[in-house]
Design a protein around this nucleic acid. Sequence first.
DNA 1: TATGAATGAGCTTTCATTCAT
DNA 2: TATGAATGAAAGCTCATTCAT
Lengths: 193, 193, 193, 193
Amino acid sequence: MKEQIIATCTQLFEQKGFRETSIQEIVEELGVTKGTFYYYFSSKEQVLMMIHTKYIDHLLLQQAEIMQNKQLTNKDKLRALIRMLFMNIIPNGDQARVFFREFRHLKDEHMKEVRAKRNQVRHAFENVLREGMDSGAFKNDLEPDIISLGILGACNWSYQWFQPGGKYLDTEIADMFINMIYTGIEQEANKGG
Amino acid sequence: MKEQIIATCTQLFEQKGFRETSIQEIVEELGVTKGTFYYYFSSKEQVLMMIHTKYIDHLLLQQAEIMQNKQLTNKDKLRALIRMLFMNIIPNGDQARVFFREFRHLKDEHMKEVRAKRNQVRHAFENVLREGMDSGAFKNDLEPDIISLGILGACNWSYQWFQPGGKYLDTEIADMFINMIYTGIEQEANKGG
Amino acid sequence: MKEQIIATCTQLFEQKGFRETSIQEIVEELGVTKGTFYYYFSSKEQVLMMIHTKYIDHLLLQQAEIMQNKQLTNKDKLRALIRMLFMNIIPNGDQARVFFREFRHLKDEHMKEVRAKRNQVRHAFENVLREGMDSGAFKNDLEPDIISLGILGACNWSYQWFQPGGKYLDTEIADMFINMIYTGIEQEANKGG
Amino acid sequence: MKEQIIATCTQLFEQKGFRETSIQEIVEELGVTKGTFYYYFSSKEQVLMMIHTKYIDHLLLQQAEIMQNKQLTNKDKLRALIRMLFMNIIPNGDQARVFFREFRHLKDEHMKEVRAKRNQVRHAFENVLREGMDSGAFKNDLEPDIISLGILGACNWSYQWFQPGGKYLDTEIADMFINMIYTGIEQEANKGG
DNA sequence: TATGAATGAGCTTTCATTCAT
DNA sequence: TATGAATGAAAGCTCATTCAT
């Protein structure tokens, strides 16, 4: 039941927005009554928090695996992190959209908690960049914090536009972005023009 | 008065969100009564639409200037477009955040109108990329539509994190992004590693 | 201007109802501003009262002519009164419908005034009936008050259903009603069946 | 509760009018809160519709019994229909007055529905008249549609004036009207004068 | 004569939440 | 576990009316 409620809420929050989805609609969709909802959750916000937790925890788990893998170079890691972002946004569009869009409806303490975890993701990017700069893999004049935000923006923005069944697969898009980020878009022979 | 209402609404919508800002709060902030609000606007949504129109129309104006400037190469134009995005997001943070966050509260017809204009911006990026590819300025294996979305994501995302008075100026950030997008982050001597 | 306001109000009150017509709509229809309306009338109700006065005073005038005409028998008078009702309802449909439908929105003192005048009309019917009964023109076992109400009902009800341009002229309908009221609908040869 | 709300609304709508009765007044009268009202009904108009449905459906039921009764001649049926109108208006004054006065506040689809049912009543009158004309019970030069409207007007109008506890019983009034409608008011010996 | 900005009270409706069962 | 009646606060919006100009 708890899982069912979360699933239904994810869908509805995605379609109509957190604020615009009423408990009434949720329980009607589920075919139960309001009482049932409040038996399992103490508020609508709690469900929203669970959706957030689920999403970000899953991300952090994958991130940890990447970061701890000693076989990977920093370049490999960055590639893997970027792919990770796409692999979470694209096949779980509903969750991702709720995650990115409804964040502000969390209550203060929950917001802090989620923000801290989002920062962990950002720091992973920063760390990989920094280490890659030190090792000579990446240019040594980058500002890792800003570049991280650029990469995150490029990738996360896809929650707004990616439509499954479009021209490209999610993996293809990830690779195009990696390419752009690694080598830029300028024609070699024509640098600086 | 109309301008005052828009200004106050921009602030409040930014701080609390469109849905969470009540007419009561708006008029209290302004020191007038509800009647006054509805004398100037027929609904809260109408104010939201005005904020959107203002933002996007200003953007389109600047974009037109860039695109029509025959002195600029495609590389120049892309640089100018990127700077344009930042220059609109960063000094007008409130407006920009309302623009990006509250879009979904526009009513259908208004949403369509704004979406069409947002698409014009996207198409400008696509066109510059495509022409730059043809002229040999940019790599010839890019997918201009996807790359545009990447660039837009990287830049627009800044509405979420940029804080005036931070470590870098807006122009500095724009340049870092342009650098990344043009030449990538890989160390030359170490390509492909 | 005063006349124009009354005319427009009559139309609008008829179409939408007194309560549902806003001052805003009235002045928009007239192409003036609210101030103008309140320059000529002190309230919306006052306009309604004028519409009522106009209608009922006109009726009373015609009624007085009929009642004072010494050439007419009581039968003639009753016929004339019935025709009078139709001739006022049918060519002035809007006024009549406002008169019958919006009466309750008059304020107490106005209501009393109009009610008194409506009673005068009713009493004319009663008097003609009573005198006609005395003179042997009408059956002598009628209850004039009740019969008056029956006649008034039959006639006034037409404000609800009469549509100009229909199958019958207003005068034809008046005559059918007079016929029914005078001689009934039973077939002579078949009385009491 | 639902029944209680309908009963209270009927009373209040009768006294003050539909538009003039606020939800606040309704729930205060009932000693509950607004929430309760909206738990049982989705709008004020819905209650109005229920009052209408109740009234007209009851009427149609009685009408069906009359029309299907093969023991009755057409004259009998017309008498019964007329009595039916009075028997519904007079002991249920509140309901009847709401039915006749507040019809226009129904929303379009509900209005249509009720209008269709009101037309059924009218058609019953027309049919009885027509058949009675064919069988020789009624004069053969009547226009059944117009005569029906006359009869309906005479009877229905009583919602405006009948006061329980007056000089006559409702049945007495019905009989006076039947008499007038069947045989007219002219003195036999004095026809045509 | 006419304007139009401003008022303020009131309206219908929504909704997250509670709680006795 | 689950129900569903009831709450109460607040929301967006309407509108007749006023009044300085």
